[in-house]
C-alpha cells in the first residue's frame, strides 16, 4: 500500500514550486468554470462557451506576440467576442446559434493568422501547443494575481446575481413578470462566461476549456436536484479532476516515453469525462431498473 501510494505521489510533487502554483491556480479556475458552467448548462449555452474558448486562442496568440500575460489576451478577446455575440443577438433563442457561429468563424480565422505569425517569429510550435492545449505548469507567478482578480470578480458577480440569474435562466417569462431586467442579466452572465472560459483556456488550453466548464456541471446536475448543491458539487468535481490531473501529469514524466511528461490538460479532461460517464452509466442503469 505504501509503495503504491509512493508510486502515485512521486516524491517532489508537493515541494515543487511550479506544481504548487499550478495546483492553486488550477483549483481557482476549476471552481470559477464549474460554477459558471452550471448556469451554462441550465441556460443551454454550451455552444457559446465553446466558441468563446476557441476564440480565446486569438487572444492567447496576440498576447504571445505582444509579449504580455496570456491572461489579459484570453480575457480581453473573450469578453470582446461575448459583446459581439450579444450585439448580433445571442439572447434570442433563434439568434443564439447564428450569433455564436458568426463570431466563432471570424475568431477562428483571426486565430489561425495570429498563431501563424507567432510561429514565424519564434520558429517553434511550442507556443501554438500552449495556446491551444494550455499547460498549468507554464503559468508564471505573475499571472496569479490576474487569475485571482478575474476569478473573484466572476464569483462575486454570480453570488450577487444568484437568484435573479437562476430565475431568468429557468424561465425568462417568470423573471420578466417579476420586473427583472432579463436582458441585462443575460449580458452579465455572458460576460461572466467569457471570463470563466478565458481563465479555463489559460490553464487547460483554448480548445479544451469547455470541458472544465460543462463537464463538472453536467455531472453535478445528474447527482442532485438542488441548485445550490449542484454548484458546490460541480466546483468539487472540477477541483478534484484538476488536482488529480496535475498529479498524473507529474507522474507521467516517468512513464514511456520516459522524460516526456504527458500534457496535464489531457488528464484533466479525461478525468472529467470519466466522472461524467460513470454518473451517466449509474443513472442509466437505475432508470432501466426498478423505477
Amino acid at each position: 500500500m505504501a509503495t503504491l501510494l509512493h508510486a502515485i505521489v512521486e516524491p517532489g510533487f508537493f515541494s515543487s514550486a511550479p506544481v504548487r502554483l499550478a495546483a492553486e491556480m488550477g483549483a481557482l479556475v476549476a471552481i470559477v468554470a464549474a460554477v459558471v458552467g452550471v448556469f451554462t448548462v441550465v441556460r443551454g449555452q454550451a455552444f457559446s462557451g465553446e466558441a468563446l474558448g476557441d476564440i480565446g486562442a486569438t487572444g492567447g496568440a496576440s498576447a504571445y506576440l505582444a509579449g504580455i500575460s496570456s491572461v489579459w489576451g484570453f480575457v480581453g478577446i473573450s469578453v470582446l467576442a461575448a459583446a459581439a455575440m450579444e450585439l448580433i443577438g445571442v439572447q434570442r433563442a433563434r439568434g443564439r446559434d447564428i450569433a455564436t457561429g458568426v463570431v466563432l468563424g471570424a475568431g477562428f480565422g483571426l486565430a489561425a493568422l495570429l498563431i501563424y505569425l507567432g510561429t514565424l517569429q519564434t520558429s517553434t510550435s511550442g507556443s501554438t501547443v500552449t495556446i491551444l492545449f494550455g499547460s498549468p505548469f507554464t503559468l508564471s507567478p505573475s499571472d496569479l494575481p490576474l487569475v485571482l482578480g478575474f476569478g473573484a470578480l466572476v464569483l462575486v458577480t454570480l453570488a450577487a446575481l444568484y437568484r435573479p440569474l437562476l430565475l431568468a435562466s429557468i424561465s425568462p417569462e417568470l423573471a420578466a413578470a417579476r420586473g427583472l431586467p432579463v436582458r441585462l442579466i443575460g449580458v452579465a452572465y455572458l460576460m461572466a462566461l467569457a471570463v470563466a472560459v478565458a481563465l479555463s483556456a489559460v490553464t487547460i488550453g483554448a480548445i479544451l476549456s469547455t470541458a472544465l466548464l460543462v463537464g463538472p456541471a453536467a455531472t453535478a446536475l445528474a447527482l442532485t436536484n438542488r441548485p445550490g448543491r449542484a454548484l458546490a458539487l460541480a466546483a468539487m468535481i472540477g477541483v478534484a479532476a484538476t488536482w488529480l490531473g496535475l498529479l498524473l501529469a507529474y507522474d507521467s514524466y516517468y512513464w514511456p516515453p520516459r522524460h516526456h511528461g504527458w500534457p496535464p490538460s489531457f488528464f484533466i479532461v479525461a478525468l472529467v469525462l470519466i466522472g461524467y460517464l460513470a454518473v451517466a452509466a449509474r443513472r442509466g442503469g437505475g432508470r432501466r431498473g426498478a423505477r
Binding site: 443551454g44 435573479p164 437562476l166 429557468i170 424561465s171 423573471a175 417579476r178 442532485t224 436536484n225 438542488r226
Partner: peptide, 26 residues
Amino acid sequence: FLLDPDMPLRGRDLVALGLDGHRLGL
C-alpha cells in the same frame, strides 16, 4: 413553461424563488 427534465430545481426551490427571486445576494 418548458423545463428540461434534468434541471436541478425542485418545486420547493421554484416556490422560494417566487418569494425572493428578485433579491440580490445568496
